[in-house]
Design a protein around this nucleic acid. Sequence first.
DNA 1: TATGCGATTGCCT
DNA 2: GGCAATCGCATAG
Length: 198
Amino acid sequence: MFDRSFFSRSAVEVAPELLGARLVSGEVALRITEVEAYLGEGVDPGSHSFRGKTNRNAVMFGEPGHLYTYFTYGMHVCANVVCSPAGTSGGILLRAGEIVAGREIATARRRTSRSSVDLARGPARLTVALGITLADGGTDLASGPLRLELASESSDYESGPRTGVSGPGGGGEYPWRFWIPGDPTVSPYKAHAPKKRV
DNA sequence: TATGCGATTGCCT
DNA sequence: GGCAATCGCATAG
């Protein structure tokens, strides 16, 4: 159980404090090592909520501390923690982490990963390892089988440009990616690659 | 209604 | 290092 006011602040402010927190999903637990902050409507061109509320991003306009999931590339699910002051929208994308409990279950779900550090190294891998699906969107992470346990101590962190974000707000415009330095589960930085035109 | 591409991953060369 | 997979959403017409 956490104080919901923790997530009633700017995602950029909260994101580094989320490093080291544990995301528990049933028998499996993850120690978060890499996140990205996304702000809200009209503010952050890289955010799904930039153009206002839609059916897909409605959860981000709701209660802070809930789970926002989305489907992308026709096959992947990514997870965010809704994080924004009342009346605004925003979220923190969970990009990578270390499986600290239930490794056997996570390994069975992640059949293609060859080493334990790859289990949740990447936002779509992370959701597979934890068994998170689109149906989990909107879940309150304060308590329950799918919950977030904040770190008791803040950890050191580094920040840099967000990965995979194109256009305005992408590239190095905002250093809103945060990670734990030297952790092997942090995903490699990959600049956005525009699709080749025919 | 039609079209282009995405907060990615894994297999192929 | 390059690229296919695969479909919902946003934008254009």
